[in-house]
Nucleic acid binder design. Structure first.
Lengths: 335, 335
DNA sequence: TTGTACGCGTTATCAT
DNA sequence: ATGATAACGCGTACAA
């Protein structure tokens, strides 16, 4: 701490022998300042180690130069999901050239919505990216109606107003996965779906059902919650109910890794006995034995696009429609 | 947006028929306000949907009610590491009861230090938690000397001033892992170490070396960079150099998963041919086949403690020494 | 090109 | 117990 707190514009002005206003202009890169004045001011700034006070600036400009990334769930799962990590990476890289900072809002405990709602409403950020998994209560709806630029990381379930969102085509992605299983000759193809209150759960199941129906094959469905444990349980139930299954489409890589393990423990060879296709192409996909054939979604790109859209909206653009990206089937060893 | 921006203290005061100052008192829970006045003000607040402006508040109180969690590396690996996720979880849970928000500062590209240094210096946060992996340049040193409450997530390499930090006893942790390998009869025990410019790399290697030396056995060392790829390469080199190894201590679970895969591909049975011990006990440990025996570190607890220490320092406490936590060997199937 | 002066929404001091 | 009023540090018309 330097004696009397951090230096202010005023002090810089005094040292540089100019007015506060001029220093402000230099700091903000106004073109209408004499080069020599600029030099003098910059010298003073360096000498004092001046750095602008954002609070004061925000107060007058009504811009905070920070955006929130909101996880409206107490879900620590979100963090262990490589999906989130990838998106965060994309978001932060896109935000980097900007002066914007990233504020992470996590719902600490179930039902503590109002905490971040207040924060968002308080004008502490210029906009927000919502990482929503569940279409829970009416939180998403409330978020969507906030007087603030907002982008959703997935089509928010249960929201009836037009909102900007970025997502992959989960239905089509699931289709490619299941179609691949059929293409390699599998007929008893089951799925481990995600929860139906998540876009990812709902749409991927739809894709599976569609393909099976078109092929005239029965749908064999169990549900997991996108955790390894959930995947394990679902696989066990599936093996009990359909011991003769020869193909398995799993709605996430994390659940798929558990499925592979259970299959192995139960003496099923992958892919010869049971072919397995996952969804995500996360880092996990290459860590399993055998390596996972999976439906890739371009997570970093999604994150980057989320940030771009948000910045555009903050800049005044009126974007309120979903953007859908394509998936790609990555064939490895499990199917 | 309601006509004219968000309501201010002034407007609430007008509606409630009191002065600005009184409203402020109510908002901040001052005891010296008549209950009936409180009621009137709270009514007005609800009616207007008032929420205090943090920028204005921060300007006068000089407190921002937000803390930064800094990743002073462009390292996207940090995110895919479950270790980071766990700590983040612990930090955010501890911060929750507080009014403090979490600001995430990531170095977007190599060498862009000054960006977050300026931010931290600008008084935008009340304190910062540094998640540092590498003892790179003098960034850590600069961070340590910031006139701001700071806590490091690991003993920062190359910092010569006393700083607060939270870490596990990596040396002892590695010892228990290696000693276990010896205890189950392994003699050709190799290690995949992490980079030596990270505490985790350095100390865990030390633990390995110590045990091997005490046992009068040769140290067989290869280095990885804490990624799956690095682990894979190191394992291959190790198998080439020492085809007869029967024990392997890997400095991280992520690298260990890769090692397991390579060993399997090379026809080594785990644990019968080669016993493997990892480090972390991350979610990965139970996802492998066989499940990984590993040295657990209490990540969430570390994160929580980081936050506690930071809050204490912000509150005026003068903590500038490391805190070391114990690890625990979790025995599963790989050793 | 530069300086003056005002306002941003709060908290805190001092009267009342 | 409450109300004026002065900061807090900055941006920006407006004036010079």
């Amino acid at each position: 701490m330097d004696g009397s707190g951090s230096p202010t514009l005023e002090q810089v002005a005094a040292v540089a022998g100019v007015s506060r206003a001029t220093v402000s202009r230099v700091v903000n890169g106004s073109p209408k300042v004499l080069p020599e004045t600029v030099a003098a001011v910059e010298q003073a700034i360096r000498q004092l180690g001046y750095v602008p006070n954002r609070a004061a600036r925000a107060l007058v400009t009504r811009r905070t130069d920070s955006v929130a990334i909101v996880v409206p769930e107490p879900d620590s799962r979100v963090f262990s999901d490589p999906f989130f990590a990838g998106m965060l990476s994309g978001v932060s890289r896109t935000l980097a050239p900007t002066s914007s900072q990233l504020v992470l809002l996590i719902e600490p405990a179930e039902g503590d919505d109002q905490r971040f709602m207040r924060y968002l409403r308080g004008g502490h950020v210029d906009g927000a990216i919502i990482i929503s998994h569940h279409g829970r209560d009416n939180v998403l709806q409330e978020l969507a109606q906030l007087p603030l630029p907002i982008v959703f990381s997935a089509r928010p379930l249960g929201v009836d107003v037009p909102v900007a969102s970025v997502d992959v085509d989960n239905v089509a992605g699931a289709r490619t996965g299941v179609e691949h299983l059929l293409a390699i000759g599998r007929r008893k193809v089951a799925t481990i779906a995600g929860p139906l209150d998540m876009t990812a759960g709902l749409d991927r199941l739809t894709g599976y059902k569609d393909v099976m129906k078109e092929a005239g094959l029965p749908a064999l469905i169990e549900y997991g919650d996108f955790t390894a444990d959930g995947g394990e349980q679902a696989t066990l139930r599936l093996l009990d109910a359909h011991p003769d299954l020869d193909g398995l489409f799993v709605a996430s890589d994390l659940m798929a890794t558990a499925a592979l393990r259970v299959l192995s423990e139960r003496g099923r060879r992958v892919p010869s006995d049971v072919a397995v296709v996952g969804f995500d192409d996360s880092v996990l996909a290459t860590m399993t034995t055998p390596k996972l054939t999976t439906v890739r979604q371009p997570v970093e790109q999604l994150g980057a696009r989320l940030a771009e859209i948000l910045l555009a909206k903050i800049g005044g653009a009126n974007l309120t429609s979903p953007e859908i990206y394509n998936t790609e089937l990555i064939i490895r060893d499990s199917a």
